[in-house]
Design a protein around this nucleic acid. Sequence first.
DNA 1: GTGGTCTAGACCACC
DNA 2: GTGGTCTAGACCACA
Lengths: 131, 131, 131, 131
Amino acid sequence: MRWDYHNDAPIYTQLVDQITRMIVSGSLPPGERLPSVRNFAMEAGVNPNTMQRALTELERNGLIYSQRTSGHFVTDQSDYLEAAKTRLAAEAANQYLRDVTALGYSREEAEKLLQSVIRNVEECKNGDSNL
Amino acid sequence: MRWDYHNDAPIYTQLVDQITRMIVSGSLPPGERLPSVRNFAMEAGVNPNTMQRALTELERNGLIYSQRTSGHFVTDQSDYLEAAKTRLAAEAANQYLRDVTALGYSREEAEKLLQSVIRNVEECKNGDSNL
Amino acid sequence: MRWDYHNDAPIYTQLVDQITRMIVSGSLPPGERLPSVRNFAMEAGVNPNTMQRALTELERNGLIYSQRTSGHFVTDQSDYLEAAKTRLAAEAANQYLRDVTALGYSREEAEKLLQSVIRNVEECKNGDSNL
Amino acid sequence: MRWDYHNDAPIYTQLVDQITRMIVSGSLPPGERLPSVRNFAMEAGVNPNTMQRALTELERNGLIYSQRTSGHFVTDQSDYLEAAKTRLAAEAANQYLRDVTALGYSREEAEKLLQSVIRNVEECKNGDSNL
DNA sequence: GTGGTCTAGACCACC
DNA sequence: GTGGTCTAGACCACA
């Protein structure tokens, strides 16, 4: 896992985002025990307080739960994970639509634009793999 | 024009974004003179300094230019405007792709998801028009 | 003559600079009568007030003199023009030395740097002439 | 460090220039932490906002970077610093050439003029040391 | 304590 | 009237 941060947003927010992705994408499977706050913070290269704050946020979101003495665990309600996943994806799609229509594009153009960008990405990927 | 701000980003950034959209979408046509800094600030409900900062940023981006004693003007290089428009749209599309693939979706699913969201939006629109 | 202005300095200052160069470089010869303020301003694409201010400044510098009813003339004291020329050149050289030593270069390096830049310019010139 | 300002340019610009020189000349070494905005401003005798603006500009130029809660640091990419140094020096040399050729001198004369000015400076220095 | 944003109000040169 | 700079002082989130 790569942990890199930018300056435009609070670190704890970026932690929440990244861990969320790890969970809903399954790279942190349901029921999995997370490293201790202290270790997890070291791994991510941040202050334990910051990691604690991120975990609290994730617990508030229902993606993880904490057991008093034994640590934090990814929720094992996989239907909930699935719901979170589709919700986040729908949010992203709506954001994209809002952005691109604000620029003066129609919804059809938004669709075509996405397709051309995808083609573009795939060409680059192929180019890279040839290096 | 609606000027509404949220709390996650600095106001001057949001001003830059909104004015950028007004320009590239053509609602502020090339060569058009903007209101004076003070008036524009009043209209947007912010301090003149904040608006000034936003305009400085826009000038740095090449979307407007300032003429020392007569005001700010939308650039009249329409090819540049067009380039900015497509650049911003491509950024939005890439952002969407990044978000949604980070959640574990494939690029094909990203496309289908967008289509279903668009259908959804259009149904809502129709629903509204039936009210 | 090209008259183009940038935004970082007052227009009248830029006029003073450009006319000064025209005079000391001889493109406006000693004793020459300048166009009327009104015409000169039109030619330069500026407000007559602005041109007037520039001429006043030039008169203060002794590069031109005005005769009540017949207009402005380049001074015919060619020794004075010569002196102004060398003074301005010396100022430029000193400015260059100050700039470049502030960056941490020695005076010898300043000399070598200038030579390499000159070579560079001449290559570009040759390249252009081949187009 | 001497902080003296003249009236022809905005203070924040002059701050940028002076700090840039401190950095590229090595008097502020790579990786070095700058004083806090407030302290730096006090030291330079300006308002914290003004210093902040200068630092923002320097960050945009890539000469420093800011770490959200711990301060500003000189970039540690020394190759970049070296590039900036030579770029600034080349700009100064070009400026000198432009100035002096606009006065009607040839490039050879520009070179000789610089040499004579350098000799002049060194004589003065020697004169000083004899006092 | 750090950077950063925002407001308020004054001031300036320019045209 | 225009843009632009500067100061003063308050406020905030982050670590």
